[in-house]
Design a protein around this nucleic acid. Structure first.
Lengths: 246, 246
DNA sequence: ACGCTAGTGTCAGTCGCTGACAATTGACAA
DNA sequence: TTGTCAATTGTCAGCGACTGACACTAGCGT
């Protein structure tokens, strides 16, 4: 998306998506299918993935606070300094996989056919994301590890706080996308934000229920998501643009 | 409330309410009206208040991140170590006044006559809290400083995260109180949580609007609160106990 | 083969925060 | 008043998160 730039970059080093100097790079790089990534890139990706894997493994077994960055770095056999070149903070590595999932979702949402109502679009985007996300995660960490991480985040005060803030940011992003789809102005019409807030509330409940339940598989999460969203659907399947209410 | 214990205590040193070794102290101290606080207590309170005042002043002028704990401690002429004996973290001092306000509210809510519906009780508790809070705050810091602080919190990522977490905790606390009032079980009946969530959402919007508006006075906040809550009121003035819907 | 630069390690230093110990100093009784 | 006891505070040392500077190694393009 954002084209190569100086310094560490591509596989999402530091905070990608935020700031983002804007498009440039008048140079090459064919539109689709990246050329074989080259040794350098592969190496970078390997250490990055290894850092995530080790970090999450340590976090989920010893606890987040009781794990030091040095431990993680040592486990991957890189210097602490290198760790911080990949992740801006200890916190960030804990959300690395989450971020992937979120990006998937945002991307899926942007792809939804414009004739879908806002709520359907979101609903289908999550479900569609859940289907493809499994493999994507598995390329980096065992899915089971990610699920454990998810629960750890909710039970670690410092991470919970970060999580809530991230969620708030996500809602903002999604609101804008939804508003755009419907040709509305987020700062004028409150409905996009309200719809998104409702949607996320449902997702949050889903997450909690899943974390509490016995079947902590990926399939279970997908199933719960579908179930809960379908509860809301009848009340919210609005069509803002053409005035009908379904 | 929790009775004096060894070490720093009374005026809310460290995190009161949390953990809390449990009641003991078989000793004196008459039930109500504290006897003249004694030099020690007064001194403690003075340094505590001074720390808060200096901290907020520095935070709001230089920014939270750019202010070091040493700076605060130096300004009050105590050691850094002493600062941390009053506040568990740099973050905590930023929320010191907020905490007072919250305690007020919770207290006011608990005092509401039981015949009031849950939503009215909350509504009246905030309004009532806003009326008395001014002086209480002013005893510690200029009200204007607190309002500036409030805006700073919302614009500082690290503090925003903490704020969201604190809000989530508050919602939990309030849900329990409301459920108790109505004789419900929070873990069984979802209505208390929903009502509280709705209520806090309105409060959050209020806060945002106020922060954005031009009239950043205390009166303005009270006025906004009242206005927004009254919008919700008609839809939510439920009476759960006696089955009626108004 | 040969620069060029991206990526890494090392070093030193800042800042938040904590335990331990010693020095003060209110509070209270003899 | 004096002395004892315990509450506060300061000092010191140290850990862990994080950053800037600089030197070094190794892919990459020519």
């Amino acid at each position: 998306m954002t084209a190569p730039a100086p310094g560490l970059d591509d596989p999402g080093l530091k905070t990608p998506g935020l700031d983002d100097p804007g498009p440039r790079d008048p140079a090459p790089r064919a539109p689709a299918a990246a050329s074989p990534p080259g040794l350098r890139e592969r190496k970078k990706r390997r250490t990055r993935d290894a850092l995530i894997r080790e970090a999450l493994e340590l976090f989920t077994t010893q606890g987040y606070e009781r794990t030091t960055v040095d431990e993680i770095a040592d486990a991957v056999e890189v210097s602490q300094r290198t760790f911080f070149r990949y992740f801006a903070s200890k916190e960030e590595v804990a959300f690395a996989v989450q971020r992937m999932v979120e990006e998937r979702f945002v991307h899926a949402l942007a792809q939804r056919p414009p004739q879908e109502g806002p709520f359907d679009a979101m609903r289908n985007a999550v479900l569609c994301a859940w289907d493809t996300i499994g493999e994507a995660i598995a390329e980096v960490v065992p899915v089971e590890l990610h699920l454990r991480t998810f629960r750890m985040i909710e039970s670690t005060p410092a991470l919970l706080a970060a999580h809530l803030r991230r969620s708030a940011e996500m809602e903002e992003t999604i609101s804008r996308i939804v508003a755009d789809r419907e040709g509305l102005d987020v700062d004028e019409d409150p409905r996009p934000r309200i719809a998104v807030a409702t949607f996320s509330a449902a997702m949050r409940v889903t997450a909690q229920m899943w974390g509490r339940g016995t079947d902590q598989s990926l399939a279970a999460i997908r199933e719960l998501t579908e179930r809960y969203l379908d509860h809301l659907n009848p009340a919210l399947a609005l069509r803002w643009r053409d005035g009908s209410t379904t």
